[in-house]
């Protein structure tokens, strides 16, 4: 499927570049609906890049970006998680969360392992699951107003969409521990300095810079680019699976539901701060 227009995302293949746009209000919170549409995207991505359909006019690069002015993505839809959890018994709640995690991991792994060169063009809020989506990409082009953050620990949780193994794969331990254990946010300049972002763009220019990068990528032999990527970017499958296990272990603690309840009901001006 070369193009799709859904409720939360849309994509289009044009001139050898596949562009995935996130457009769910208010800030691309990853809900069950978005997950369903991301699964469709992952299937389309695999079909478009399979050997049988890897025609010369096929894609060389993938750009993921957001149409929401607030940012790239605020992460998992915690309100949906909380309200759905309230409707379920504890055992069913855990099974439901595990299933969600396994599904989103399959999507992230498909993007991570895609033979295309993948670029996240990010701006504004790039938090939690949104940050994890960006980390699945090969390159992160960050608008200078971007903030990256893993706020999960304030809820008694850990990042669960593959963020910890991918962050650990890409960055030094000091930065990984700082982001994870303090829950603080960092800006694009810091992200560039620590090797998280590859380029910083002026305000509103991340998508343009990502398109320019994709045009450069398009000049190269696709099989060679894919081989280079596979060599330098192994998928940490064991750690990703372990992350799901740890998330499920901590999710059963009463403090988590209390943390989610506080978040959902919060009227504080700074609910993302730990």
């Amino acid at each position: 499927m070369k193009s799709f227009k859904g409720r939360t995302i849309s994509w289009e293949l044009a001139d050898g570049v596949l562009e995935l746009e996130l457009h769910r209000e208010p800030c691309n919170e990853i809900s069950s609906t978005m997950l369903e549409e991301l699964e469709k995207f992952a299937a389309a991505l695999e079909a478009l890049t399979s050997h049988a359909s890897a025609a010369p006019e096929g894609p060389s690069a993938l750009i993921i970006h957001s149409a929401r002015k607030e940012g790239f993505s605020a992460g998992a839809d915690l309100r949906e998680l909380y309200h759905r959890s309230q409707e379920l018994a504890a055992s069913a709640r855990l099974a439901s969360v595990r299933k969600f995690l396994e599904r989103i991991h399959r999507v992230m792994n498909t993007i991570d392992a895609s033979p295309l060169t993948t670029i996240a063009a990010v701006h504004g809020v790039c938090f939690g699951g949104g940050f994890e989506l960006a980390l699945a990409c090969d390159l992160i082009v960050a608008d200078k107003m971007t903030r990256f953050c893993f706020p999960e620990l304030r809820l008694g949780l850990i990042p669960g969409f593959g963020g910890i193994p991918r962050l650990k794969r890409d960055l030094g331990n000091g930065v990984v521990r700082d982001l994870l254990l303090t829950g603080r946010s960092i800006n694009a300049t810091k992200a560039l300095a620590v090797g998280l972002a590859c380029q910083v763009a002026a305000e509103g220019e991340a998508l343009r810079v990502a398109r320019s990068t994709a045009a450069q990528v398009r000049k190269f032999d696709r099989a060679t680019s894919a081989a280079a990527k596979q060599f330098i970017k192994p998928i940490p499958h064991k750690e990703l699976q372990r992350e799901i296990e740890i998330f499920c272990e901590v999710f059963t603690r009463p403090a988590v539901m209390e943390g989610l309840r506080k978040f959902v009901e919060s009227t504080d001006a700074l609910p993302y701060l730990p």
Partner: peptide, 28 residues
């Protein structure tokens, strides 16, 4: 009358303007 996202925007502008890092927990 700003919300959390606008507060983060302001923080980012201040960090960019002054060329500093200001962990958001220091603003609690």
């Amino acid at each position: 009358g700003i919300d959390s996202l606008q507060a983060l925007e302001l923080l980012t502008r201040l960090e960019n303007h002054f060329g500093i890092e200001l962990p958001d927990y220091e603003l609690q």
